[in-house]
Design a protein around this nucleic acid. Structure first.
Lengths: 203, 203
DNA sequence: CTGTATTTGTACTCATAAGTACAAGTGAGG
DNA sequence: CCTCACTTGTACTTATGAGTACAAATACAG
C-alpha cells in the first residue's frame, strides 16, 4: 500500500511552493490566499483542506526551508569546508538575487522584516533557520581554529553572525538599489575581514 | 500675516508622525489609513485633505526622513568626523532599536524590504536616503584618506556601503532574534574591519 | 460494486482597506 | 458681520481579504 493519497500531496506541495515564491517576491502580507490559489491552479477547497490558515501556511513554508537547508536541498550549499566554500556561500546568494533582476531580497530576510509582535511563531521559525545557518558557518570557523589556522581572538559564533548580518544587509541594499554592485562589494569586504583572522599554521 | 493656517499644519504633522511611527513598528502594508487616523486622533476628512493617498503619505514620510537627516534633526548624527563618531553612528542605531525592546528594525530597512515592483517611487525615495547616508559616511573616509590616514587601497564609497549593509543586516537580525547581542557584535566586527584600513600618517 | 475517506469546487459570509462625497464648522480680512 | 478659504466630521461605496459551509467527485478497501 505504498503510494496512497499522492494526488493530494502533490496539490499540497504545489500550494506550498507557489506560496513560498510569492512570499519571496512580494512578502507575506502582500500575498492573499486568493492569489496563491490562482497561481497554484487550485481552489479554496484545497487551500483550507491542506492548510489550516494563512499563518499556518507561512509556518509550513518556513519549515520546508529549514528542512531543505538541513537536507542539502537548498539552492545553495550551507556546508562550508573551505574559504572557497564560504566565498561561494556569499556570492551565490547574490547570484540568486541577480537571477531575479535584483527585485527580491533574501527569502528569510523578506519575511523576517515583516514580523510584528503578533507574529511570534513566525519570528521563532525564522530564528531557528538563522540559528541553523549560523551553526553551519560557525562549524567551519571552529574547525579552522582547531587546526590553528585562525587567530586565538576569533570567535566562531560571532564570525558566523557577522556573515549572516552582512549578507542580509547586502541583499537588502541590493534590492532597494536594484543593483548588485554594492551588495557584491559588501560581500567582498566581509570576506576580507573574515580572512584577516586567518593565520598560517605554525608547522 | 505670519501665522496663518497653523491648525492644519499641526494636524498634517500629527498624521505624518503617527504614520512614520506605525510604519516603523509594523510596516506600511500592515498599517491602514484607519489605524493612522485613529492613532493621530483625526478623521478621514483630514487624512485625505492633507495627503492624496496612502502611497502619497508614505512618500512624504520618507521625504521627511530625508530632510531630517539633511538638517541634522534625525535621532542620530550622520555627520561623521572621527572614528569615535563612526562608532557612535553604529551603536546609536542599535541603542535606538533597544529602546523598542528589539521589536523594530531600521525604519528605512523595514519599509525597504516591503517594496515590490509596484512601489517604484517608494524604492527611489529610499535609494535617495541611502545615497545621502552613504555620501556622509564616504565623506569621512575621503577626508581620512586625504590626510594619509587610510591605506591607498581603501575605497571610500565601498566602505560607506559596507557600513550601511552591515548595520542594516545587524538590525534585521536583531529584530528577528529579538536580541541585541548579535547586532552589537556584528557592528563591532564591522568597525574592526574598517579600522584595519587605518594607518599611522608618515609624519 | 458499495461504503468510507479523501479530494475538489462553488457559493456564501463577515470584516477591513482605501477612498469619495459632501455637509458643516472655523476664523481672519474686508 | 459676512464671506471665503481652510479645516473637520460623518456617511457612504466598492473591492479585497480571510475563512466557512457544504455538496460533489474521486478513489480505494473490502
Amino acid at each position: 500500500m505504498q503510494r496512497k493519497f499522492i494526488r493530494g500531496e502533490e496539490t499540497r506541495l504545489r500550494i506550498l511552493r507557489t506560496a513560498a515564491d510569492l512570499f519571496h517576491k512580494q512578502g507575506v502580507r502582500a500575498t492573499s490566499p486568493d492569489e496563491i490559489i490562482e497561481a497554484s491552479r487550485t481552489g479554496k477547497g484545497q487551500f483550507y483542506h491542506y492548510f489550516k490558515s494563512k499563518a499556518g501556511l507561512v509556518h509550513e513554508v518556513l519549515q520546508e526551508y529549514l528542512d531543505a537547508i538541513q537536507a542539502g536541498r537548498a539552492p545553495l550549499s550551507y556546508e562550508i569546508a573551505s574559504w572557497k566554500d564560504l566565498e561561494r556561500w556569499f556570492l551565490t546568494q547574490i547570484e540568486l538575487q541577480k537571477s531575479y533582476q535584483m527585485t527580491r531580497g533574501c527569502p528569510f530576510g523578506t519575511i523576517g522584516n515583516e514580523v510584528t509582535e503578533n507574529d511570534e511563531l513566525i519570528r521563532q521559525d525564522l530564528s531557528l533557520i538563522f540559528e541553523l545557518v549560523k551553526n553551519k558557518l560557525a562549524a567551519f570557523f571552529v574547525k579552522e581554529k582547531a587546526k590553528g589556522r585562525l587567530t586565538r581572538r576569533a570567535n566562531p559564533e560571532e564570525l558566523a553572525d557577522f556573515c549572516i548580518a552582512t549578507i542580509q544587509g547586502a541583499m537588502l541594499m541590493g534590492k532597494i538599489k536594484r543593483n548588485s554592485m554594492t551588495a557584491e562589494s559588501a560581500a567582498h569586504q566581509a570576506l576580507a575581514h573574515l580572512k584577516s583572522y586567518s593565520v598560517k599554521p605554525n608547522r
